[in-house]
Design a protein around this nucleic acid. Structure first.
Lengths: 176, 176
DNA sequence: TTAAACTTTCAATAATTATTGAAAGTTTTG
DNA sequence: CAAAACTTTCAATAATTATTGAAAGTTTAA
């Protein structure tokens, strides 16, 4: 007999799993686990959260929460929010996922892609006979990598632009 | 007075810098530094290399060299090569960078994207009233992330396919 | 001005991840 | 078969990276 298990979760449980999933994924892509979790938490939180909320919900220290919130702000993924009559700072995330993708892409470009491309360019200035096969092969490899990196980068840009257009088109339709 | 420094490197120096660069980049993207360096070394080596060569050129232990070579083989980026009259195993990397991109993409899809998508799907089966705004917003966020991940993944596929076509077209032209 | 409320810093520590190297395993050769 | 030539494994260790938490810093309110 075949048994089919269909598993439905409670919202709270699903949210918990989402932050865990995002944290694990982040850490396998070189992103601090806690930073990814804080981001996840804010993405699915209807309200802005304060440092205490984050410390409590993720079981992390004040220092850790603070540092990762600041880092998320330098990525422009999270903003401070002040509430009237409350001295605490609150934090909310950008929730438009294409906007999130755009900002992450922008920041990675600045921090990693551009320096990489600059370094690759330097590596093709070889002070030896360029007709030498070994020199030629090396320069060709570096140029090919340069080309793949550049094209991947533009492909992402193109996709993000296309989605922006789509969204803009949809808004226009609603307005007319 | 402005002074312009133009710096040309010797090939050996450039190769050294290339493996360093690739190792550093890898480790900031969650890829083992040594694995990235071994890959870089093989990418720019005209000859297949044996374990000893790699140990020496990267100053790593036999165990480390061996483990990372095996890992590179499971990614299908490196292959064993046997030389007649020599008991040692030699290793060579796939050098067509678009082919490399294709294989990395295939492996990341299998290891990370597919499991991620499966997990995201599970997270939308919420056992609560789906008209509830909080439930609706959460499910929408998860679906949007699903959509971005899927589209990024296809954008990469499309780019790689396009380059394959281009290459195929160029070969056809040469043959006619 | 002082105390309370809150944020930031950072040295110490913990957790994670990578690396070593020697021993065990395997294959080949004579 | 035994020894040599080579590869693989994995427990111990090192290196790296993340986290803590208490002290210092800052802002606000009374």
């Amino acid at each position: 007999m075949k048994v089919l298990y269909l598993c439905f979760m409670k919202l709270a449980e699903a949210k918990e799993q989402f932050t865990q999933l995002w944290g694990a994924l982040g850490s396998s892509w070189g992103i601090n686990r806690t930073m990814a979790q804080v981001h996840a938490l804010l993405l699915i939180s209807p309200e802005a959260l304060c440092t205490e909320d984050i410390m409590e919900q993720l079981s992390v220290s004040r220092g850790n929460a603070n540092m990762n919130l600041r880092e998320l702000m330098t990525w422009n993924l999270v903003q401070k929010e002040i509430k009237a009559g409350d001295r605490k700072e609150y934090f909310k995330a950008e929730k438009d996922i294409w906007e999130v993708a755009k900002r992450i892409s922008k920041e990675r470009k600045r921090r990693e892609i551009q320096p990489l491309i600059a370094s690759l360019n330097v590596l093709t200035d070889i002070d030896e006979d360029k007709r030498n096969t070994e020199v030629k092969d090396f320069v060709e490899m570096v140029n090919n990598i340069h080309s793949v990196v550049t094209k991947m980068d533009s492909a992402v840009d193109t996709l993000i632009k296309a989605e922006e257009h789509k969204f803009f088109g949809a808004v226009m339709k609603l307005l007319k």
